[in-house]
Write a protein that binds this DNA or RNA. Sequence first.
DNA 1: TTGAAACTCACGGTTTTCAGTGAAAACAAA
DNA 2: TTTGTTTTCACTGAAAACCGTGAGTTTCAA
Lengths: 215, 215
Amino acid sequence: MNTSFSIIIADDHAMFLDGLTSILSKEKTIHISLTAKTGAQVLKYLRINTEEKIDLVITDINMPEMNGVELNTAIKSEFPQIKTLVVSMLEDAKKIKALTEANVNGYISKNAEKTELLKAIKSILNGENYFSPRIKQVLMEAMFSKKSKPEISLSKREIEVLKLIAQEFTTQEIADKLFLSKHTIESYRKNLISKLGVRNLAGLTRYAVEKGMLE
Amino acid sequence: MNTSFSIIIADDHAMFLDGLTSILSKEKTIHISLTAKTGAQVLKYLRINTEEKIDLVITDINMPEMNGVELNTAIKSEFPQIKTLVVSMLEDAKKIKALTEANVNGYISKNAEKTELLKAIKSILNGENYFSPRIKQVLMEAMFSKKSKPEISLSKREIEVLKLIAQEFTTQEIADKLFLSKHTIESYRKNLISKLGVRNLAGLTRYAVEKGMLE
DNA sequence: TTGAAACTCACGGTTTTCAGTGAAAACAAA
DNA sequence: TTTGTTTTCACTGAAAACCGTGAGTTTCAA
């Protein structure tokens, strides 16, 4: 039986990495095999040191080169026995969802207490998954809001036209750009207005900007 | 002469706080008087413990109750002899500028190395200010871009009208709301269009949304 | 292969916006 | 006190957007 667990910590914030290391190095049952600043470094290490048994990888989401989601997916496909815990600042529902789909074993916030961190690690090493209450809530809300909102879906053309409208092009100009009739663009504009529940160009533009469709 | 410096650390992220504490507690010349999760806690402590001499307060920008900028302003006005260092994730030019105007003594990023952290602390305790190269760059760029842009300034009424336009109200509706003539609103709209260098409602709306005028 | 969704086009009528031009009154700053 | 800014209002003609209604074609999944 294993009396000590080997873990890897990855985070691009040096101070946070130091902090986490210093907290965990006080735990007798935990051995820190590697601290890394990118997901790529972690993968490289795992691929080379095939004889060393790693139990857990603790990782941030936002890292250069390879982010947390990619790293998790890679680990779970190449080394399915290794557990993963994400410790992140973010509470972005999309990213959290992506992580659960990548079968991450736990997720806690960076402003969690030390005790919660240790609790999460112990749970995961014990074979359970651990998600902090706040994260569970975000996940629930994401599911819930998806059901409540009829999920307005726009077609390719609609998106194309909407973007151009928000970029201040007139109907005629958009028609010329897309080699379509002026009437066609008018139809799209009309449909967009009714689909998105807005009243005019201002509403369409606001929708586009707020959804980050322009860049 | 002082052989040991007393410092306070404030950050709402428990793990980061632990990390910073564990790094700094290894330094013989540094004594950690308090670790806090909010700016308000720090101020309270400073006001009560008037006999204890604090040399440096290390703080994040984003904290509940009282943020880094507010905390800095308060410290500098009530306890001008206390030095301050901001350690933050953000590189938002506006916030950084606000901090420099609050006379913060240093600013480094959370992904700075431990060595840079210690360097910054030592510089500041030595009477110098310390801003990491990256932060200096952001500040320079902010200054530079401000000079290049003629700084479009809108009057109260213009802002009022612009907001309503971006909220999908028609000219007539805005006129009614503000008890003005339809013609007046038309004048404002026209001026806004030429002032902001846009072509139509879409452009006005984009400007308003991107400047965060709606909320 | 069949039906739904997406894509395309058309037209007449109404409302709103856009562009140009002008100007009076109030107010603050120099 | 003069100058500049802000706020307010007016009119016209052209352009664009908005509204309703209808319909042919393509495309893709069930």
